[in-house]
Amino acid sequence: MPSTDASPTAPALSVSLDGVGRSFPASTAGEPDRRVLRDISLEIAPGEIISLLGPSGCGKSTLLRQVSGLDRPDEGVVTIDGSPLVGIDQRCAIGFQEPRLLPWRTLEQNVALGLPHGTPRSAGRERVSQLLDLVQLGDAKHLRPRQVSGGMAQRASLARALSRGPGVLVLDEPFGALDALTRLTMQDLLLEIHAAEPATILLVTHDVDEALYLSDRVVLLGTEPGERAGSGAVIRSIITVPGSRPRDRGDSTLAHLRAELLQGLGVSIHHPAHTF
């Protein structure tokens, strides 16, 4: 077992997926199992930010659940820092698309939910207030979730994930439910958090720009052309995003990658360059 010490900055950990696959029983009896993922192999270096991109329903969230320990793959193994992952793990924290804050707790108490078990009270309080400052909620810590905006709630949810002291931070469309402007500020905040608490981050997104802006590598999931839909999604391509963060949102090389990714997602881009 890894140590459960609550030191403020746990080191980022490597993640390795080796031939991961997941099937679900068919909804009608007699049908073959519905295969969602197959042959997913990926090495993620400590501190890397990886975006999972793919068409709706292709199994991105399912893959995330394998890495967070909420679900177990029926093929292959997930390894974190060299030791296999079985079930919910202290080394991993998950953030959901919805903030999922407990409505009867203040933001501060919600963040404290993430603290590792056995954290001394005073150390825990200090850690929580440090994290609330990091996500710029220091002034709102005594408010209830229903009293704050969606963006604030999502920040509290990020702070809660961080309070677990994770080596790997798994985020399922963390900014998907936010308005466009809030999303941009949250992206910058995530990068600040990453600089301050360098966990390995694996995030699912629908937003190609978000993926390019945030990540070191973008992993495109999808079914292989010619395969029928039930054969399971594989890694279609892995794109290394050039340059280093913070990136220029208007960078022209990114625009090129963006077109490539959108095409990979099956979206036509209606760009003049493609009409000659």
Binding site: I88, F96, E98, L102, G114, H117
Partner: peptide, 11 residues
């Protein structure tokens, strides 16, 4: 069920 799952995810 989201909150219950959350509790599980946080051990």
């Amino acid at each position: 069920p989201h909150l219950v799952e959350l509790g599980g995810a946080y051990g």
